[in-house]
Simulated scan of single mutants.
Amino acid sequence: MSSSALQEHLGYVGDSVRLEQFKSAVAQVVKHGDYITDLGCGTGILGLLCLQAGASRVYAIDSTAMIEVARESFVRAGWGGQVIFMGDYSARANLPERVDVVICDQVGYFGFDAGIIEYLADARRRFLKPGGALIPARLRLQLAAVESETSYGLADGW
């Protein structure tokens, strides 16, 4: 695994505002006994939040070497036995059952640049039980003019 991939994921985990938003959503949505699918699970932090909120099973899906970081995170936290790890793209993954909640942090830096719209549409159709929930349920993009070489570099990458 490249150190840049790990740095990127550590940036997400270290973003306290972002993490608090996910904690709040999990607290509102996840119920005791729920089954969860975490798309692009990365470090596994969102699945861990769901288990702490009472979920009984997490399907952690990631196509990168981060799946091993997630595995280690769940094992060290004592939740390894409640997680099914799937090292694949979510579009190719097949679950043995439908889940109550699909959670995904593939929002990137601009809300939609990492493919979340497509991932969640596919997951809703194939993984989610009728009446199930998506986290996030919606995205609100707010823009402001800024001058920053770092931001320009990110936007120019598109």
Rank of each mutant, 00 (worst) to 15 (best):
88 D>K: 14
127 F>R: 10
72 E>P: 01
82 Q>K: 15
98 R>S: 09
93 A>H: 05
90 S>A: 12
105 D>F: 03
140 R>Y: 11
116 I>E: 01
105 D>A: 14
136 P>Y: 03
149 E>D: 14
126 R>M: 03
131 G>I: 13
123 A>E: 02
100 D>H: 15
129 K>M: 14
85 F>M: 11
71 R>A: 14
108 G>S: 08
77 A>G: 03
107 V>G: 12
109 Y>E: 04
143 L>A: 13
87 G>R: 15
128 L>I: 11
86 M>Q: 11
131 G>S: 08
96 P>H: 08
103 I>G: 07
104 C>M: 03
145 A>L: 08
100 D>P: 05
119 Y>C: 02
133 A>R: 15
96 P>G: 06
139 L>C: 07
128 L>A: 06
78 G>N: 13
102 V>F: 02
83 V>I: 15
142 Q>F: 11
141 L>I: 15
111 G>E: 03
136 P>W: 09
96 P>M: 06
117 I>G: 01
153 G>D: 05
128 L>S: 05
118 E>T: 12
88 D>T: 14
79 W>L: 08
104 C>D: 13
143 L>V: 14
113 D>C: 14
113 D>Q: 08
130 P>H: 03
118 E>K: 09
78 G>D: 04
87 G>H: 11
95 L>S: 08
87 G>T: 06
114 A>H: 00
128 L>E: 06
74 F>R: 06
86 M>W: 01
114 A>T: 00
98 R>G: 02
73 S>C: 13
72 E>S: 15
94 N>F: 02
146 V>N: 00
81 G>T: 10
73 S>A: 15
78 G>P: 02
121 A>N: 04
100 D>S: 15
149 E>V: 13
107 V>P: 00
107 V>L: 15
85 F>H: 08
125 R>G: 01
76 R>T: 13
82 Q>S: 14
97 E>R: 14
135 I>M: 11
92 R>T: 03
99 V>M: 07
110 F>N: 04
